[in-house]
Write a protein that binds this DNA or RNA. Structure first.
Lengths: 152, 152
DNA sequence: CCGATATTTCAGAAAGTTCTGAAACTCCGG
DNA sequence: CCGGAGTTTCAGAACTTTCTGAAATATCGG
């Protein structure tokens, strides 16, 4: 790893934190590096600075694109892909919330709606359904608020 | 696994989702099971219902206790530990937010404060520090809001 | 203090994930 | 259509996490 010390501290921290969020270490590091970089970087820049394999960077960038967390740009007369993060931090926060909702809340709501449609057999299932309805209603309330906020 | 079908669907879903949050499959399943159960359960109940090893349940319960997500109770004349989740869903949400803050935001703020204290060497480090300050200020703003909300 | 019951710890097996180098693919200018 | 620059894919190696059974520890009633 070939970075100024301040940058390195930040990059390593995000590598560790990445694991707590569903992203892996390298993905966290790539993101942190792009976030701090004054210029967009291409894949080989990232390889050189982080000291990981070219293919690992390729996969990491693909994942960051799937999360909508990086912007892809080109330079005139250079056909390599250059990556950067949005300058606006709020934009980043909004994207993160949006993506997490899509991956965690939405599938859960779908599952809850399905099981709430079924008829319960026995007292335990009746109680279970009541608990699931509570959770379902709370999730709806929260996503409703979120949609309202978003509109501002 | 030995559960009514409705309950099983929910439990399996939370097992999968658990992996997306930093908790493992078994922990997610135990939590889901306790959430739906009309009665507090002891460790052997959980073993029987989920079909996992006794020691795995023991570790899972320990982790849930570390997260403050389960309540431990006792019954007269029975010295086994019985576990349940708080009835109030809002309580659960608050706990989750609180714990994630403690594990993700607070360490990051500490790291940011440290690197912001250091003097930058070179243009790249100056730019990097400015970006870090932006992030630091945003995090402070968000935790401030959170603290305000919490008071209500 | 003993025996019975309950829980926790822990080393290693099993499962899952991340990372790499090599090969395959894509795209462009000439 | 060829050569080369850039990128992606993929099988397996390296590493990490999870899970288990066995042993250790704790706690209580008598």
């Amino acid at each position: 790893m070939n970075l100024p010390p301040l940058v390195q501290t930040f990059v390593l921290h995000f590598g560790e934190m990445g694991s707590r969020w569903g992203i892996n270490r390298t993905v966290g590091q790539i993101y942190a590096l792009l976030y701090l970089s004054p210029e967009p970087l291409n894949a080989d820049d990232i390889v050189e600075r982080l000291g990981v394999s070219r293919s690992n960077v390729s996969m990491g960038l693909k994942e960051l694109q799937a999360w909508n967390l990086v912007r892809l740009q080109h330079r005139p007369g250079d056909r390599r892909d250059y990556f950067s993060t949005p300058d606006d931090l709020w934009q980043i926060v909004r994207t993160l919330v949006e993506e997490r909702k899509k991956r965690e809340i939405d599938p859960t709501l779908t599952m809850l709606r399905e099981v709430l449609m079924q008829s319960p057999a026995g007292a335990d299932e009746i109680h279970a359904q009541a608990r699931m309805r509570e959770m379902h209603d709370l999730f709806e309330l929260l996503t409703g608020w979120y949609a309202d906020m978003r509109r501002l």
